[in-house]
C-alpha cells in the first residue's frame, strides 16, 4: 500500500464519517463543525488529485466564508440548545431507506459500467495548477467570469433586500 492509497482511504473514511455526523448530531453548531471537517477531507482529495487551486478555493470559500455565515446565522437565532422537534420515526426510517436504495442503485450502475472499469484518475499533470487554470479562465471563459460577478452583485443586493425590513 503506497502513501497515496493510505491517504485516499483515510480521507474517504473521514469524509463519510463526518458527513454522517452532520446528520446525526442534535446541536446545529456541531453539525456545522462536522461539515467543516468534510470540506477539509474533500480538499485533501483535491490535493491528492493535484488540483491545488480548487483545494485552496474550497477551503477559503466553503470552510472559510460559507461556514462562518452558517455559524453566524445559527448563533444569531440562538439555536444552540437542541429544541428541534423530531419527525416521527416512520418518516425517518423511510428517509434512510430511500437514501440507501439510491446509493444501491448508483453503486450497481457503476459496477456494471464497462467503459470506466480500467480508468484511473491520475495525480500527475499540471492542469490543476493556477497558471494553466488562469490562462484558460481569462481567455476562453471571460464572459462567464464577468457574468458571475454580476450574479454576485445581484445576490448581494437580494440578500440585503430580503434581510432588512
Amino acid at each position: 500500500m503506497t502513501a497515496t492509497e493510505i491517504l485516499f482511504w483515510f480521507l474517504s473514511a473521514l469524509a463519510l464519517f463526518s458527513a454522517l455526523m452532520v446528520l446525526i448530531s442534535k446541536n446545529p453548531v456541531h453539525s456545522v463543525l462536522w461539515l467543516i471537517v468534510v470540506f477539509f477531507a474533500i480538499s485533501g482529495h483535491y490535493i491528492l488529485l493535484n488540483a491545488q487551486f480548487l483545494a485552496i478555493v474550497n477551503l477559503i470559500v466553503y470552510a472559510g466564508a460559507i461556514m462562518v455565515l452558517f455559524l453566524f446565522v445559527i448563533m444569531l437565532m440562538n439555536l444552540n440548545n437542541a429544541s428541534e422537534p423530531q419527525r416521527n420515526s416512520l418518516i425517518k426510517l423511510a428517509g434512510v431507506v430511500a437514501g440507501c436504495l439510491l446509493l444501491m442503485v448508483m453503486v450497481s450502475a457503476v459496477r456494471s459500467a464497462g467503459e470506466i472499469s480500467h480508468s484511473q484518475a491520475t495525480s500527475d499533470g499540471g492542469i490543476g495548477l493556477i497558471e494553466n487554470l488562469g490562462t484558460v479562465l481569462f481567455t476562453q471563459y471571460v464572459v462567464p467570469f464577468e457574468i458571475s460577478s454580476v450574479l454576485f452583485l445581484s445576490a448581494m443586493v437580494g440578500a440585503v433586500v430580503i434581510g432588512k425590513k
Binding site: 463519510l16 458527513a19 439555536l79 423530531q86 425517518k92 428517509g95 440507501c100 448508483m106
Partner: peptide
C-alpha cells in the same frame, strides 16, 4: 455517490431548515 446519498437522506430526515 455515498456523500451525495448522505445529503439526500439529510434532506429527507431532518426538519431543521439550516441542516
Amino acid at each position: 455517490a455515498a456523500i451525495f446519498c448522505i445529503g439526500v437522506t439529510g434532506v429527507l430526515v431532518r426538519r431543521n431548515a439550516i441542516i
